[in-house]
Every structure is written in C-alpha cells, then in structure tokens.
Amino acid sequence: MSDLRTRPTTKRPPTGDLAAEGRRRRASIAAFYTVLIVVAIIYIYPFVIQAGTSFKTDGDSTYNPLNPFPSLFTLDAYATLADVDFPLWFRNSVIVTAFVTVGRVLLCSAAGYALSRLHFVGRKFLLAAILAVMAVPGVVLLIPKFLILNQLGMYNTFSAMIIPLLWDATGIFIMKQYFDTIPPAVEEAARIDGAGVVRRFWSIMLPMAGPALVTLTVFAFQGSWNEFTHFIVARSSAETNTLTTGVAALTTGQFGSGNRYPLKLAAALIMTIPVALVYFVFQRKLVRGQGGGAVKG
C-alpha cells in the first residue's frame, strides 16, 4: 500500500533502481485494480441480475438466470405486484418512515441539546444509561417489545409500529456531539439579549446544526424504511404490512413455493430504490457516519 505513495525524492531509499521500481509500482497498481474490479462485479452484478430478471417471465428467469437481459421483455411481475397488496405496503412504509424520521429528528435534537448544553441533576447518569441501553442487542428485545405492546393494547396499530422506533441512542449522541462543537459564545450573546432556553435551542442552535440534522435524517430514513424485526412483533394484520414484512411474506407465503422470482425481485427492487437514491445523494454522510460512529462505539 505505502509503496504506491508518492514520496519526496530526497527521502528515496538509497538502494534500488528507478526504472525497476516504476515497473513494480505499475504492476502492483494493475493487480490492485484487478482485485477491486473483480470484487466490484461480485457486488454489483446481483443487483443487475435482479433488475433484469424483474422484467422476465418466470420461465426465462429459470432458464437464463445469468443473463440480465430478458429474452422476452414483460411487465407482468409489476402488474401482479399492483394486484397484491404491494401499493398498501408501500403506503404503510411511507407513513411509518415519515413519522419515525420527523420524530427522531425532533426528539434526538432536543435530548442532544439538553445533554450538551443544559445543567441538570442526573445528566451524567443519563449519558451513562443511554450508553448502557445501546449495548442491549436488538434481537433480545423482540419478545419483550411484543409483551409490552400486547399489554398496552397497542398490538397491530400504527402507534405500536412507530413509537418504539423513536428511540435512537446513536442519534442522541450525534446531536450532542455536534452541539458540543458549537462555541458557547454563540448562545451567550442570545442569553444576554434575554433569549430563553427554548428559543436558544430552536432559533439559534438548531439552525446551526444543519450537517448533524442531515446525518440524523438520512440515518432515520434508512433505518425505519428498512426496519423489519420490530414489525414482526408489533403487528400481524394484513392491513399493517410494510414493504419489509410484505415482501418477506411473498417469499414464505402464497408465492413462496413456486419460483415466482421476477415478482419477488421486482418487489425487492422497488423497496430498494428510495434508499438507494438517498444513499447516492448523501453517501458521504452515510459512509462517514459508519466509519466514525462505529469507532466511537
């Protein structure tokens, strides 16, 4: 890796012939590109096949699985999707995602602001508690979440699907850490002018936290659009299926036994598109968030 780096000539090693070193570098760069491209094909080709197969007939998808181009172009898969409850699932996903995203942005920034800026008894305890709760693995919460939703009579309702998802410890920390970087002088001026806490938060600090808010929004959108396990335990009625539970039911339910791959792949493709668009537009946010966030635990 480091042999590919341009080094100042004064620091060139005393040994070694320049031309030979140049050849070696070119060879290793070629090797690196080969590795990257082969792996990239392994990463991209499944999506290409997915898109192509969604326009095939069932038979075509079985006989020419590797060819992304349909021998007979058909929109049958998409037409069938419109007939099953797919539009309803899409609508439900939009509703849940919208509420969860807006809710998380508001609640995380309010909590993040208080934890960053306000003095109150229990602040340190709260920070430690949030960190501790973050360690609770999601899978372990499946049955507990069902128990409480069932107990409260919320099972099979949209509030059962939305409210528990509002909790976002990472989001709170993203906001807190961003508020920490804004100089106290900014708020001090407003405080002297008589602005209260809520106004300083809403009119001064929040508008300054644009980048963190974008990150939070992107994460909340992606997380709630892709959410699956929570919807397995929060509901079971057909009317409350989202894209994730609906498409999962396609693979196990009425179309599970037959090889209705164009249909299933078309459904999976449509549910991927919104997140893909957001990813390509905001990828720097998502990429940096993953690298940085994970490192901080």
Partner: peptide
C-alpha cells in the same frame, strides 16, 4: 434492506 438482499 435485509429483506431485499435476502430475496436477491
């Protein structure tokens, strides 16, 4: 989505 990937 893990569901979409699983279908693929």
């Amino acid at each position: 989505s893990s569901v979409a990937i699983a279908v693929v």
